[in-house]
Amino acid sequence: ITFYEDRAFQGRSYETTTDCPNLQPYFSRCNSIRVESGCWMLYERPNYQGQQYLLRRGEYPDYQQWMGLSDSIRSC
């Protein structure tokens, strides 16, 4: 899974293949995501807390595409 700070896969990015309890050191906001394979559970707060979103393989050019309430993703 790759997270992008800006919409349409622009700006600083961070890629991971494992669970991350705290994504804050890698980016300040998340406006687009690419899921290369599988399913990922994302959380608005660190340590798997807050609103959660299940994303399947695909491209999400805007946080509203995954029904996000904000551009805050802090763990996965």
Rank of each mutant, 00 (worst) to 15 (best):
D71L: 12
L69T: 13
T17C: 13
P21C: 05
P61I: 05
S13E: 06
Y26F: 12
L69A: 11
G38W: 02
G50E: 02
P61R: 09
C39T: 10
P25S: 13
Y53A: 05
G38H: 03
R45N: 04
S28C: 05
S70C: 15
Y48L: 04
Y53S: 12
W40I: 11
S13A: 08
L55W: 01
G38K: 04
A8F: 08
L55P: 00
S32F: 00
W40G: 02
W40C: 12
E59Q: 11
Q24R: 11
G50H: 01
E36C: 03
S28I: 10
Q10L: 05
R74G: 12
S72G: 12
Q24C: 05
T17K: 05
R34L: 07
Q65M: 12
Q52H: 14
T17H: 02
Y48T: 02
L69I: 03
Y4T: 00
Y63S: 08
E15Q: 12
L23S: 02
E36G: 09
C20P: 01
L54S: 11
N31C: 15
G58C: 04
G50W: 00
P61V: 07
Y4W: 06
D62S: 07
Y26R: 09
G58Q: 04
T16Y: 15
F3C: 02
Q10I: 03
N22Y: 14
R45H: 08
Y26N: 13
E5Q: 07
Y14A: 09
M67Q: 08
G50V: 01
R56C: 14
G50M: 00
M41Y: 12
E15R: 09
E59A: 07
R7T: 03
S32G: 02
Y4E: 01
P61T: 05
G58L: 01
S70E: 09
F27C: 04
E59D: 12
D19Q: 09
T16V: 12
N47Y: 11
Q64D: 12
Q65T: 06
D19W: 13
R74P: 02
I73V: 14
C39I: 10
W40K: 01
R57Q: 13
T2W: 04
R7K: 05
T18Y: 10
D62R: 09
R74H: 11
C20T: 12
G11V: 02
L23V: 11
F9E: 02
Y63I: 09
F3V: 00
P21M: 14
S28H: 10
S75A: 08
P25R: 15
N31E: 15
G11N: 15
D71W: 10
R12T: 12
E36R: 07
F27Y: 02
P25C: 15
Q24G: 12
N47D: 09
F27E: 01
F9L: 15
W40Y: 04
N31A: 02
I73P: 14
S32L: 00
P25I: 04
R74K: 10
N22H: 04
Y63W: 05
R12W: 12
W66I: 10
Q64S: 04
L23E: 02
S13D: 05
Y63L: 06
Q10V: 12
M67V: 11
Y14R: 08
I33F: 08
F9C: 15
C30F: 04
C39R: 07
E44V: 05
D19P: 02
E36V: 11
N47R: 09
S13H: 09
Y43M: 03
Q52A: 10
T16S: 09
Y53W: 14
R29A: 14
L55F: 03
R74A: 13
V35G: 00
L55I: 13
Y60K: 01
R29D: 03
N47E: 13
S32K: 00
Y26S: 13
P61D: 09
Q24E: 15
L54Y: 02
E15G: 07
R12Y: 10
C20F: 03
E44L: 10
D6Y: 12
M67K: 08
T18D: 15
F27N: 03
C76Q: 02
C20S: 15
G11K: 04
C76E: 01
L69G: 09
S28D: 15
R45L: 05
S75I: 04
Y63P: 14
Q65G: 08
Y4V: 00
S13Q: 13
P25F: 07
Q52N: 08
Q51G: 08
C76S: 13
Q52S: 09
E44I: 10
Y43W: 05
R7G: 10
T2H: 02
L55M: 03
F3I: 02
Q49K: 08
S75Q: 03
D19E: 07
F3N: 01
L42G: 07
P61A: 11
S32V: 00
R7A: 09
Y26T: 04
W66H: 10
R29K: 10
Q52L: 10
N47L: 10
S37P: 02
R56Q: 11
N31G: 07
Q49Y: 10
S37L: 03
F3P: 00
G58M: 03
C20D: 15
L69K: 06
Y14S: 08
M67W: 13
R34T: 13
Q51M: 06
L55D: 01
G11A: 07
Y48A: 03
Q64M: 06
L55G: 02
P25V: 13
M41V: 06
G38C: 11
V35W: 00
V35L: 09
Y63K: 14
Y14W: 15
T16P: 02
R29P: 02
W66C: 04
Y48K: 01
N22G: 04
F9T: 02
S28Q: 08
L69R: 10
E36T: 15
G38M: 05
I33Q: 01
E59G: 12
Y4F: 15
W66F: 10
G38L: 04
Y4I: 02
A8Q: 11
T16A: 14
Y53L: 10
S70K: 06
W40M: 02
Q52G: 07
D71S: 08
F3A: 00
G50C: 03
Q51L: 12
R74W: 15
Y48W: 10
Y26E: 05
C39W: 12
R29T: 15
R12E: 14
R7L: 09
M41T: 13
V35E: 00
D62C: 04
G50S: 03
Q24F: 05
M41F: 15
Y48P: 02
F27I: 05
M67I: 06
F9Q: 03
R12Q: 12
D19K: 03
C20W: 06
C20G: 08
I73W: 15
Q64N: 13
Y63A: 06
E44F: 02
D6V: 04
E5C: 01
T17F: 04
R74Q: 11
C30Q: 01
I1T: 01
F27W: 04
C39S: 14
C30N: 06
W40R: 00
Q51T: 04
Y53C: 06
R29Y: 12
L54W: 07
T16E: 03
T2Y: 14
G68P: 10
E59S: 13
Q24A: 06
S72W: 10
D19C: 08
Y26M: 14
D19A: 07
L69W: 14
C30V: 06
R12G: 12
C39F: 09
S28W: 04
T18C: 04
C20L: 08
Q65I: 05
Y63T: 06
C20H: 14
C20Q: 09
R74L: 12
C20A: 15
L54M: 08
C20Y: 07
R56G: 04
A8T: 10
G58W: 02
E15V: 07
S32I: 01
E5R: 12
A8C: 14
S32W: 00
D19V: 06
Q10S: 07
N22I: 05
